[in-house]
Nucleic acid binder design. Structure first.
Lengths: 246, 246
DNA sequence: CGCAACCTTGATTCTGATCAATAAAGGTGG
DNA sequence: CCACCTTTATTGATCAGAATCAAGGTTGCG
């Protein structure tokens, strides 16, 4: 990956940045004066590669930066006192990692790459500088954080109220939509996580995930070939979700 | 409640503000100059009473303000597409409501008072003004929002991994601690919510909540008299939580 | 090629949900 | 203040969904 692609002075926005939540920082909109632009230019550091299986940060490490996924796929996991841990999210291109670290000044979860990936690093200290120069940026970040809160609360709803089939359907449809937004096929994709990781995220055991996928396949709603999923009747999955406890 | 109590120029901080997350706004610390103080003074609007059962905001209403609970007790509930809804949080004095509304400009949950309450209103537009004057305030708010993310993720862990007994134990210990921080008894308190609301929050049915409380009582760990709870052996509850799936 | 990790499927168990009945509490209006 | 009614809580019996235990198969990596 050459530097050219990430130079902020380029007029065009690189393709993988099209969905990035930090786009406004990396590729500022017209309307800012030269001085402000110069400040923005300093916000994002060099991009950084993360190999599959490596962690971007770990619980307890000092919080210094937020990270936007540039390419690849990550999971975050939260460990509790007795050693159990849970996947709290899957993150793909353009999504932001590390927000939980701001409060305590330490990351509160582990972020692990599920395939070879690249991230853009946003040192948090730079953000404070930017906000002093361009106060509207503060609101931009409040919105990003608010969106993460909404995401988490929807997940709580899923974990608290839904049955295994519904959880999996919600997950597949959500993943499908996010892939589509990034220009990938909505109905034909590769799961980047294991059944166990997926189960952990959904509050299910891996056997239940496997069985439920098989059941969906039997219904003819999708085709499972290991990690390769093809949605044949996404509307049937949608119906499952919308129905009041079928 | 007279205005005197809330005047920002008072040297002493009112008692119920002692734990408030907005304390820094209402009762600024030394080190700010006169102009900055004047700005802060405009941030918090008049306090506002909310009667038991009334809602502070509802899903879909235009987001304009954050609210800090001044006195009383609130729940927030999230409704999903098929009509089921879930309690996403309980909020007591000093805690902040409405953060999920920032992103979309609409509240995404309902906030309902579970007893006669008072809130301090923080119009979000004022916050943007403050940040322009005192940039360090932006970080202060990032931390508040980050704390909410951490809270939600811990809840996800509970909903995804814990058994009914553990969930209830975690809840009781957490409530106990928050009450103690506010100067109330840690081991003798009144539940403000019904068994159903508590169950919804914990991802359980009301019968399960009732049964589990009865079981705790049989063990001698606590005493239940309707909504009046006395913790007799909080350490036993703690042990239940810390143990790897007893 | 061989081993380890991952996935599928079956049998059984267990936790919590559901259905049901009763009791107790709290609010309302006379 | 009391009687009534509605809401809320407790407890029991049964059921269902997912966990657990177990075995066998597949993949892919070293």
């Amino acid at each position: 990956m050459t530097n050219i692609i990430h130079q902020h002075t380029e007029c065009t926005v690189p393709r993988m940045c099209g969905n990035c939540v930090l786009q406004l920082l990396c590729h500022p909109q017209p309307g800012l004066d030269a001085e402000q632009l110069a400040d923005l230019d300093k916000v994002i550091q060099e991009t950084r590669p993360v190999k599959k299986g490596q962690s971007l940060f770990r619980t307890g490490e000092r919080f210094q930066s937020l990270f936007a996924v540039r390419t690849g796929f990550f999971k975050t996991t939260l460990a509790n006192s007795d050693g159990r841990d849970q996947v709290t999210g899957f993150f793909m291109s353009g999504e932001l990692l590390g927000l939980e670290g701001i409060d305590a000044g330490q990351y509160r979860s582990d972020a692990v790459a599920l395939e070879d990936s690249e991230v853009c690093e946003l040192p948090f200290a730079n953000l404070e500088g930017i906000v002093a120069e361009v106060p509207s940026m503060a609101t931009y970040f409040y919105k990003l954080m608010s969106r993460e809160i909404v995401r988490d609360q929807n997940l709580m709803m899923m974990l608290g109220n839904m049955r295994a089939e519904e959880r999996l359907a919600v997950f597949l449809l959500n993943l499908s939509q996010r892939l589509q937004l990034r220009g990938f096929s909505a109905n034909d994709f590769i799961l980047r996580m294991s059944r166990e990781e997926l189960g952990s995220y959904l509050g299910l055991k891996l056997e239940t995930v496997s069985r439920t996928l098989s059941r969906f396949q039997q219904e003819g709603w999708l085709k499972v070939e290991h990690k390769h999923i093809r949605l044949l009747q996404p509307e049937s999955l949608q119906a499952l979700v919308s129905q009041p406890a079928a």
